[in-house]
C-alpha cells in the first residue's frame, strides 16, 4: 500500500489549478488542494512510522490553520471585489515592472 501517488497527484492538480484558472475562487480551490495533499501526507507519514496518533494531532492543528488562512484569503478576495467588482486575476495587473 502506498499513498504517496495520491499526495503528489493532489499537489499536481493544485498547482495546475493555480497556474491555469483565472478565477480567485478557483485559486482558493487550488490552494485547498495543496493543503489537503499536505494533510494526507501527514497522516500517511504517521502510518509509515507507526505513530498515527502523533501525526493525527499534527493534522488537526494543520487543518485549523488551513481554515484561518482560507478565511483571511476570502476576506482579501472580498476586499478586492469591492474595488474591482471582479474576481478575475486578469484584472490584477496594476502592479508590474
Amino acid at each position: 500500500m502506498n499513498l504517496w501517488p495520491f499526495v503528489f497527484a493532489l499537489f499536481a492538480l493544485g498547482i495546475f489549478c493555480l497556474l491555469t484558472r483565472r478565477n480567485l475562487i478557483k485559486i482558493l480551490i487550488g490552494l485547498e488542494l495543496l493543503s489537503k495533499g499536505a494533510t494526507l501526507a501527514l497522516i500517511w507519514s504517521g502510518i509509515l512510522r507507526n505513530s498515527l496518533s502523533y501525526t493525527q494531532s499534527l493534522a488537526v492543528i494543520a487543518i485549523a490553520i488551513e481554515v484561518m488562512v482560507v478565511a483571511v484569503f476570502l476576506a482579501l478576495v472580498y476586499a478586492f471585489h469591492e474595488k474591482s467588482s471582479s474576481l478575475d486575476t486578469d484584472d490584477m495587473r496594476r502592479l508590474k515592472g
Binding site: 494533510t39 497522516i43 493534522a59 487543518i63
Partner: peptide, 10 residues
Amino acid sequence: LNSPVAGAFE
C-alpha cells in the same frame, strides 16, 4: 486509515 480525529476535523 484509522485516524478518526483528523477525519472528524476534516
